[in-house]
Simulated scan of single mutants.
Amino acid sequence: MTKKDEKNLQQVLDKIASMDEPRRGVMRRVHEVIVAAAPELKPRIWYGMPAYAKSASTPALISLRNDELMNLSLTEKAAIEPAGGRDGLLSPSAWYLEDLDEATEARIGEIVRAAVR
Rank of each mutant, 00 (worst) to 15 (best):
A51Q: 05
A78W: 00
S63E: 08
E81L: 15
A60K: 02
L74Y: 13
M70Q: 09
E40G: 14
P39W: 07
R29P: 07
E81F: 11
R44A: 08
L41A: 06
A38C: 14
A37F: 04
Y47D: 12
I34Y: 08
L72Q: 06
L74D: 13
A38R: 12
P50T: 04
M49E: 07
L69T: 14
L74M: 14
M70K: 05
L74T: 03
M70L: 09
L72P: 13
M49H: 07
E76H: 14
A53P: 03
A53E: 01
E32N: 02
Y52N: 00
P82V: 02
R29K: 03
D67T: 06
A37P: 11
T75D: 10
R29Y: 01
V33Y: 08
K77I: 01
A38T: 08
A38L: 06
H31D: 14
R65C: 07
E81H: 12
E81S: 14
D67K: 10
I62M: 09
E40Y: 07
K42H: 12
S73A: 15
R65E: 06
P82N: 01
T58S: 10
A60M: 02
A78Y: 02
L41W: 03
W46E: 09
V30E: 01
A53H: 00
K42Y: 06
P50S: 08
A56W: 03
A51R: 04
R44M: 13
K77G: 03
V30I: 01
P82E: 03
I80M: 15
R29M: 00
R44C: 07
P43W: 06
V33R: 10
G48R: 05
N66H: 13
V33E: 12
E40R: 15
N71K: 10
S73Q: 14
E40I: 11
K42S: 09
R44S: 09
I80Q: 14
I62H: 04
E81M: 13
H31Q: 11
P43L: 13
A78T: 01
L74G: 09
S63M: 12
A36V: 10
A60D: 01
N66D: 10
R65Q: 07
S73L: 14
A78V: 04
K54A: 11
E68L: 11
N66F: 07
T75M: 11
E40H: 15
L72S: 08
I45L: 15
A38Y: 02
G48E: 05
E40Q: 15
V33K: 09
V30A: 00
I80L: 15
A79F: 12
P59S: 05
L74P: 09
L61D: 03
I45Y: 01
R65L: 12
P50I: 04
A36H: 12
V35D: 04
K77N: 12
I34W: 10
W46K: 12
S55H: 00
A53S: 04
S73F: 10
E76P: 12
L61K: 04
E68F: 03
V35Q: 14
I80G: 12
E32Y: 03
A51G: 10
S55G: 09
D67F: 08
V33T: 09
V33F: 03
I80R: 15
V35L: 14
M49R: 08
P39F: 06
L74C: 15
Y47T: 11
P82D: 03
